[in-house]
Design a protein around this nucleic acid. Structure first.
Lengths: 232, 232
DNA sequence: CGATATTTTGAAATAATTCAAAGGCAGTGG
DNA sequence: CCACTGCCTTTGAATTATTTCAAAATATCG
């Protein structure tokens, strides 16, 4: 069930009822930079990237979002980022007006939504710490821990135990654009962690953490607060 | 007047009435990492830094806040950052319960507060773009533009025109920790911009932009959305 | 004025990028 | 089924940006 919607209240139920399921193919854009915002999207399955483009082709990925995370909040009527499907994506789309009226009439839903926004800020702060203070291998280790926590917390069927198997639905270029380093540096960092025996790959999109303690040592246990969900 | 408080409503007026003015000396901590959060702080004058510390003494500054910006929101009962006064700071402190009850009873205040949170996310996204994609001189140029916009929008007496005079109330170390590069690199970047004739200094804390177009070229006009205020 | 901290500059070392090529994998068509 | 094509990932070597270490200049404070 979508975590942003509080079905306990009448407003929550009305909002839930207004949602429409949609499918997005690989590469499909759920939002484009500058698009008018008329909807809130709640992801059911699949992964998307949220990114921003610079002048000379530079791209910064702000986050990867999966099941049970939502998209579409903005302070301006135009969405400032691009949201692209990295895999097939199934999502529920809520009309903006319905969301706004639920926010206006239900203090509980409003408080819940507000808390999610604060969590987004905190996860952005983790991201800033990572790219501002960490070396490339540390960023990659940190990224693996981030994915690990996320994939347990936002598993499609609901929260589950953390696993040592990490899915990497995004490309190396995507990871580079997320962590603020080049593709080659990402690849070298993975190779280095693998050569040290900390991780292993069945294929390039499926990573196994072999020495969690070492990954923590590089990725930083205390340096980042556990990711908590929600997405702009 | 504090922008987060909507004095048009009875709830807003009640909240305003509950605020207490406080003074903080240079170096004083308004919040510490892990502190219990029992208040919302609205800055009247002065500048503070919001930062997070890593294991090996690494520090990332998440933002600099000045007049008409607020602090103290968090999803956990413990505040995840440290907030330190860089100058003398005058602030109004509101009890957390009063803020929460205003949020619960006034949909207008709640919507306003929510919008501020979204703006914080967007400014964090700008920051992530800057440290993820830009070179050191670009980061510094971008930082100057950021300060310029902020100092006009959040001037103590209310919004004013943007000026070419930029105040730098923070140290070079602070700027480095904000932009994710070393002090020396910050200093070299300033020297480089100065040597190119783009900026000049009366002293190290007061910068004059001589060639705004060039600073824009390096700091990126379109790469970052204008800062809009509010702070976690 | 002297003492201390901050900022700037210099030189060497290092991390990451860039350019270039090789390796691996998936899909297509013979 | 295999070879071919194209794409993504990995590795290598040279270049560049940034850091680190060290010292000089500048500002700040008692």
């Amino acid at each position: 069930m979508a975590p942003i919607i509080d079905e306990a209240s009448p407003e929550g139920r009305a909002l839930l009822a207004s949602g429409v399921t949609e499918q997005f193919e690989i590469g499909a854009l759920l939002f484009s930079e500058g698009n008018k915002i008329d909807r809130l999207v709640d992801i059911i399955s699949g992964t998307v990237s949220v990114s921003r483009f610079g002048l000379n082709g530079r791209r910064q990925i702000l986050g990867f979002m999966g099941a049970r995370q939502f998209l579409g909040a903005a302070s301006t009527p135009r969405y400032p980022n691009s949201v692209k499907a990295l895999t097939k994506v199934e999502a529920i789309v809520y009309p903006k007006e319905k969301v706004n009226s639920a926010l206006a009439t239900s203090p509980e839903f409003s408080a819940h939504f507000r808390e999610l926004l604060v969590k987004i800020i905190e996860s952005r702060d983790d991201h800033i710490f990572t790219i501002g203070q960490r070396s490339a291998p540390e960023r990659v280790a940190s990224f693996l821990l981030h994915l690990r926590t996320n994939q347990a917390r936002f598993a499609p069927g609901g929260p589950r135990e953390k696993s040592q198997h990490i899915d990497l639905p995004m490309s190396r270029v995507d990871i580079g654009d997320y962590l603020g380093v080049s593709v080659e540096t990402i690849s070298r960092a993975f190779s280095w962690l693998k050569q040290k025996g900390m991780i292993d790959f069945s294929d390039s999109n499926h990573c196994e953490i072999l020495q969690l303690d070492q990954i923590y040592k590089y990725g930083g246990r205390d340096d980042f607060t556990e990711y908590r969900g929600g997405a702009l």
